[in-house]
Design a protein around this nucleic acid. Structure first.
Length: 478
RNA sequence: CCGGGUGUAGCGCAGUUGGUAGCGCGCUUGGUUUGGGACCAAGAUGCCGCAGGUUCGAAUCCUGUCACUCGGACCA
């Protein structure tokens, strides 16, 4: 009974949020460290979460007409350098291959930090006519960026992601694609991951290297810091021109196509942990939980208990629910704690007394509420419980988001609000880089996004006093 | 990259003035248990992060390096 055992304990998030996060990652068996800094092993339980996210996105991408491809891992230096802003943005964090076998290479090869240049080069070969457009490609891969500070999921040197790349005849069509894919990401966050988002546009300072516009969905973590959870970029025709992509239109005149890219990485799992997790460990939304329901037999040595547990298992499995029975000889308490730590959304307790009464007890991971479920109708009872958890998590996260958006009318006020409460601070903004820099230097905040849902909080920029253009959200970001 | 902390069994840690390593938990086997982290018994497990150096002898002293971690800077 005494909690002497620190073995499986997780640091409370109020005590040390960063340590809590690391504890959850390790103790819930999501990751392990490898011998190379910033390169993490995703263990089966962690990878299964990614696979669930992946399969939802992959299906959605294909519904929208995208095709999967596989691009090379290495980018010749000369190819990377064709677009000036892009190379300037990425060069500081590139890793290079300089030796092949025992020979020094004539031209060094960059391990892809992102694949815009590869897609562009390829398209410059295969795109000739308006009939070839649009090109709607996606690839699932890992990329490498030589980050200085690394953390599981949130910032790895290598990370898994999908990168979508599309090419369109017109700017309008490309912009529409960019916005559509942003909405797909918002849907992923809100419907699948129960993570409410703020949709918006990045400022010029924060946009992707080489992009004309960067759209973002921003989430708020438990510690009220922001996490950019998905982005979508409109490139205009800059890359296409730099890489010599052109097509003949219907009038047989040469045109330059317009390009987009968009990506979501395993970082979003870090977001999932920091949005829903609690001091007992991970909390997973049912949509992506590798195990949605764990059946815990109570007094399992008594006749009929395990048999009943297996029956329930079979029924749930047949209904397409990801279910597991834990018939190990660990104690009940151990099992409860274990599956709480692993974030299983619903625990079904099934003991002799329950069986006698023709029921079992479903326990929600999000609020520990116990729901009595009839064994006759266990599938529907469990489905209801899962839906409640999925919705309950969204509500809780949405409360955290909406309650921590504050309005400020001066830089000092913004700074105070951030220091006191964290969260997003909304202000008007003149659109100037100087004001963004001032906010960073004086208040430690970066611009998160210019939300699509604009409000008028005043006429002037609270930082410089000039005429305000837009309302903007500020915050401390991961 | 700058600054602080840490590397000893799977995990958490102890290890004195330098003499070749210990505890708790976990793990394995057998048995008893099971409505919130059970108990008894018997076992197994060490490149003391890595590489040099000093020494008759290094977990211990010195140098370097790698990794983890916290803070800062930087960073879609």
């Amino acid at each position: 009974m005494a909690k002497e055992k620190k073995v499986n304990a997780i640091t409370d998030m109020e005590v040390d949020f960063a340590q809590w996060f690391t504890d959850v990652c390790v103790k819930a068996e999501l990751i392990d460290y490898s011998g190379v800094k910033g390169l993490f092993i995703m263990r089966p339980y962690g990878y299964a979460i990614w696979e669930n996210i992946q399969s939802w996105m992959d299906k959605r991408f294909k519904e929208l007409g995208h095709e999967n491809v596989s691009m090379p891992l290495l980018i010749p230096e000369s190819l990377l350098q064709k677009e000036k802003d892009h190379v300037e943005g990425f060069a500081p964090e590139c890793a290079w291959v300089t030796i092949g076998g025992s020979e020094e290479l004539q031209e060094k090869l960059c391990i892809r930090p992102t694949s815009e240049t590869l897609f562009c080069d390829h398209w410059s070969h295969v795109v000739h006519s308006w009939r070839d457009l649009p090109m709607k490609y996606n690839q699932w891969c890992s990329v490498l960026r030589w980050e200085k500070t690394t953390r599981p999921f949130l910032r790895g040197r290598e990370f898994l992601w999908q990168e979508g790349h599309t090419l369109h005849a017109t700017a309008e069509e490309a912009i529409e694609e960019t916005e559509t894919m942003l909405e797909v990401y918002a849907e992923l966050c809100e419907k699948v991951l129960s993570m409410p988002v703020v949709r918006g546009l990045k400022t010029d300072k924060e946009k992707f290297a080489g992009a004309e516009r960067t759209y973002t969905v921003e989430c708020m973590m438990h510690d009220r810091k922001a996490l950019q959870s998905g982005t979508s970029h409109y490139f205009g025709d800059g890359f296409a021109k730099a890489y010599g992509i052109a097509f003949s239109d219907k009038n047989n005149t040469q045109q330059t196509p317009h390009e987009t890219s968009w990506g979501v990485s395993t970082r979003i799992i870090g977001g999932l942990i920091m949005t829903h997790g609690d001091n007992n460990g991970l909390v997973l939304p049912p949509e992506v939980a590798p195990i949605q329901v764990v059946v815990v037999p109570v007094a399992q040595h008594k006749p009929g208990v395990l048999e009943k547990a297996d029956e329930v298992y079979a029924a749930l499995k047949a209904a397409g629910i990801r279910v597991k029975v834990d018939d190990s000889d660990n104690s009940l308490g151990w099992k409860c704690a274990q599956y709480e730590m692993k974030g299983v959304p619903v625990r079904l307790e099934l003991g002799p007394r329950d069986i006698e009464n023709g029921v079992c007890v479903a326990v929600r991971r999000d609020n520990f509420e116990k729901i009595t479920v009839n064994l006759d109708d266990v599938v529907n009872g469990v489905k209801d419980a899962l839906a409640l958890v999925q919705a309950g998590l969204y509500e809780k996260a949405n409360k955290n988001l909406t309650e921590h958006i504050y309005e400020a009318h001066s830089l000092e006020e913004a700074k105070e609000l951030q220091e006191k409460n964290g969260g997003f601070i909304k202000t008007m903004w003149c659109g100037g880089l100087d004001c963004e820099v001032a906010m960073k230097e004086k208040a430690g905040m970066t611009s998160r996004c210019i939300p699509f849902k604009q409000e008028n909080l005043g006429d002037t920029c609270p930082i410089c006093g000039k005429k305000a253009e837009k309302m903007i959200y500020w915050g401390v970001a991961y």
